[in-house]
């Protein structure tokens, strides 16, 4: 740690960053909190309504419905991408060009934009022009299109999201697997453990911090889903895919209900904070596990 040459230096160095962060992140959050106490449609002046934006959100059932949709979506995404990511990470955890190619192909979906992925899968899932959509239709699922059915659309979106982010969880799991010292496996093998035994007694317990981290970060990613919904279903059919961020967007740009939208923003932020604390705990778990080794 050094003494600054001039007492003003550190403040000058931090000023641009701090000003931008405060103006574009912290202040807007405060403004959203303030606006959530008003009823405002952009045309007439805002009217103070106290907590009624929140109570209405709750009483109208919108909050619980949106939360239910978001949680269902997240659950499918988190479980699907973690399971696939872990299986793939274990399968490609060896050197070689072939597995390197497999790794790169799965991860490439994470690098491509959500819009690209959404448009591509919209076509593939189309009931008439899409290969995958036709296959499902032949099985008797979603004959008029998976995205057109209120009972299937959300799961179709979740499936597409799993396809997009499995590469991410695979990469993180892979890094976690490579942190496990080889001697642990040798010791387990000497004890006569088969491949199942080695998985349950070595891999799984030592991978727990990584699993917790991947779980919470894919939960956060899926909680913030917007692009796939906006491009593929616009919240429909019959509101069945209206997840949190999309519902906020709709309140602002389609219904012009800014107070209600701000209340939703605040609720959304609180939920996200809780998830982030969970992630921090998972990260701590990882650090501690690392020190213990």
């Amino acid at each position: 740690m050094l003494r600054p040459r001039n007492r003003a230096h550190p403040y000058l160095m931090l000023a641009p960053t701090l000003v931008l962060l405060v103006v574009f992140f912290i202040l807007p959050l405060g403004v959203a909190g303030y606006r959530s106490a008003f009823s405002w449609d952009l045309l007439t002046p805002p009217r103070y309504v106290g907590a009624s934006n929140y109570t209405r959100l709750f009483a109208s059932g919108e909050l619980l419905r949106t939360l239910g949709t978001t949680l269902t979506f997240s659950l499918v995404v988190v479980i699907g991408s973690m399971l696939l990511g872990l299986l793939l990470a274990m399968a490609v955890n060896r050197p070689g060009k072939f597995v390197g190619f497999i790794r790169a192909s799965v991860f490439s979906a994470y690098v491509v934009s959500w819009v690209s992925v959404a448009l591509l899968w919209m076509w593939l899932l189309d009931a008439n022009a899409g290969v995958v959509g036709r296959m499902f239709a032949r099985l008797g699922i979603g004959e008029s299109g998976l995205l057109a059915g209120p009972s299937t659309a959300l799961y179709a979106l979740a499936g597409v999201t799993v396809w997009k982010i499995t590469g991410y969880s695979m990469v993180i799991f892979l890094a976690g697997l490579q942190d496990i010292p080889g001697e642990m496996y040798e010791a387990a093998a000497l004890d006569g453990a088969g491949s199942w035994g080695r998985f349950w007694n070595v891999t799984w317990p030592l991978l727990r911090p990584t699993t917790a981290f991947v779980g919470t970060s894919s939960l956060i990613i899926s909680f913030q889903a917007f692009d796939v919904v906006r491009v593929m279903t616009q919240g429909g059919p019959a509101g069945s895919t209206s997840v949190f961020v999309y519902a906020i967007y709709e309140h602002v740009f389609l219904n012009f209900r800014l107070g209600r939208a701000s209340a939703m923003v605040i609720v959304f932020f609180c939920l996200l904070m809780m998830l982030t604390l969970l992630q921090l705990w998972a990260w701590r778990l990882g650090q501690r596990g690392f020190r213990e080794r």
């Binding site: 202040l27 906020i248 939208a261 923003v265 932020f269 982030t276």
Partner: peptide, 16 residues
């Protein structure tokens, strides 16, 4: 302050 901003995504700030 910097770390706190890691927790605030654009989906929360866009309206204001």
């Amino acid at each position: 302050t910097v770390m706190a901003c890691l927790l605030i995504p654009a989906q929360v700030t866009f309206v204001p």
